[in-house]
Design a protein around this nucleic acid. Structure first.
Lengths: 308, 308
DNA sequence: AAGGGCCATCGTGAAAAGCGATGGTTTCCG
DNA sequence: CGGAAACCATCGCTTTTCACGATGGCCCTT
């Protein structure tokens, strides 16, 4: 048997295999060349190169107008070559699908951070990319990690190499049982020593409470829970008031609750910043990039709705 | 998303995918280069070319000593790329196995042509290449066709584009019931009008009988069958003699049969030529090439054994 | 603030791809 | 039995690509 054996896998060229497949199907170098957009001599050289790679002829050339015939070696090469080309086509298609925006995205969130934005985001993302695989995971509030998440909703600073975009400033408002305060705007000092129900000390909560302390106002936290409904039930029951971000209040429909009333605080407690984080330097998938755009858009709409 | 999309499957290069896999595993362009036997700058350009092909970055380069990380697009490409490389490796292995001699071979024969050579050939071929797929098929005697056979045993000329090698001259001998003729050497003329049992008029049989006619000798064919055992039973039963090629006589063990005797004919009937045929211009698989060698060798041994 | 690890880029020489033209071979058809 | 036609191999030639070594910028560490 003439020729050297295949040394490395990478000596093969997909171009040559494609040429071979075309020749095998057309039965002629010339027609294969036309199909491939090459010259006959080019195809001839491509096959010659392939034969050099595999170390033997892959076609018998009978000469004259008779079609070329594949050799036994050629049959072996062609059989595998077709699979190879199919795999390559699959790769190309996967890349195209990816770039069209389909694919997988992992979004992390924390309870209480994005009960409003995230559903809206998911709704729009699913509408735009029905074939996509959108995965949500709830992080531990004590130690939120980017991990392998593409995106993470969080309202505070994160350690690690993280970049973020601020979606909105979410101002803290006072929720009290109707009748507790007459004025719409309540001086901060009135809460000194007042009973409050509150979220656990995670996320932005410590920072917010610290703002009270710095103002010399020390409410009495009589109950902590991360369950918003429970919290508001406590407020309704007169156990105390609650200082909550607008998003949470809005999501719970407090404005339309006859037994509750929303007050502004004077001066206002610095709003929490609801942000969307991702690992620094990470190239986003089109889906992730689009998700960020949508999130910003949704947040912007929410702010507008709040101001009305 | 930056960059054009993949235009053709063949724009991909296995070399680039291999480089990508190495980089992904090593976490560094430089170490991947060492592994692949390239320069760092070469790997850098290979990845750049790959990124041009797929239309976007496949690695994030954080800079400094931190390892490069694959992008979502890169993950898509790598996943398929590994499969592609595996297929390519499978192709290379298949080619190697082929060239080592394994593979498939289709051998055709006709009853009565190669009852001795073929079993010996198959035995030796199987011993040399246990992994091979040796297929035998019996052809119709009336119209033996090469078809897609790699090799065909036949003792006459074939129409079509066929090449062949002569394995041996198989001389015709007379088999008679012991006592029919006293001499070892029997004059041809004695068979004029004598009862003969014979093979059907296929393969070389017509040519052989024509030789009788040309010599002015016209035996009386009293029975025709292609079954050698039946034929010899008829001879033993005294129904007539038989003119058979040596190979058939030898295969049936006539020499050691007390009730039969083998005679030479004087002058000898021109021997039949047992040949091995294949489609003209066909490039043989290593297995087929070896099969031809073995067949020639086996035939040569048989001739030597016959002369002893 | 300096140093080291890491990748991108540039310029260069060698190799290869692709093209057009030419030549040899085989078959078909008067 | 020639001549035309179909077909593939080969030869220069140009353009592109490949791989290299050297250089420079970036980022982290010390």
């Amino acid at each position: 048997m003439a020729g050297n054996t295949l040394e490395t896998v990478t000596d093969l060229e997909l171009r040559h295999l494609a040429a071979m497949a075309a020749v095998a199907e057309e039965g002629s170098f010339g027609r294969a060349a036309v199909r491939l957009g090459y010259t006959q001599s080019t195809v001839s050289q491509q096959i010659a190169a392939l034969e050099r790679s595999v170390g033997g002829p892959v076609f018998d050339r009978p000469g004259g107008p008779r079609p070329v015939r594949i050799t036994p070696l050629g049959a072996v090469v062609l059989e595998h070559g077709r699979e190879l080309l199919a795999k390559a086509a699959a790769l190309a298609e996967a890349v195209d699908r990816f770039k069209a925006g389909d694919g997988r995205i992992d979004i992390g969130t924390l309870q209480s951070v994005s009960t409003v934005i995230l559903p809206l985001l998911v709704r729009r993302l699913r509408d735009e990319h029905p074939g996509s695989d959108i995965r949500l995971s709830e992080e531990e509030p004590e130690a939120p990690q980017i991990g392998d998440l593409d995106l993470l909703f969080y309202d505070g600073p994160l350690n690690g190499d993280v970049e973020h975009v601020k979606l909105l400033d979410d101002p803290y408002l006072l929720v009290a049982a109707r009748g507790t305060f007459d004025e719409h705007s309540v001086p901060l000092g009135w809460l000194d020593g007042a009973p409050l129900v509150a979220w656990p000390s995670t996320c932005d909560q410590p920072r917010m409470e610290e703002a009270f302390t710095r103002a010399g106002v020390n409410p009495k936290i009589v109950f902590r829970t991360s369950g918003n409904e429970t919290l508001l039930s406590m407020v309704r029951a007169g156990m105390g008031s609650a200082v909550l971000p607008w998003l949470a209040i809005h999501a719970a429909g407090v404005e339309s609750d006859e037994r509750l009333r929303v007050h502004e605080l004077r001066p206002a407690v610095p709003a929490r910043a609801v942000c969307l984080h991702w690992r620094a330097g990470r190239t986003h998938s089109p889906l992730a990039a689009r998700a960020i755009e949508i999130a910003v858009d949704v947040a912007s709409d929410l702010v507008k709705g709040r101001q009305r």
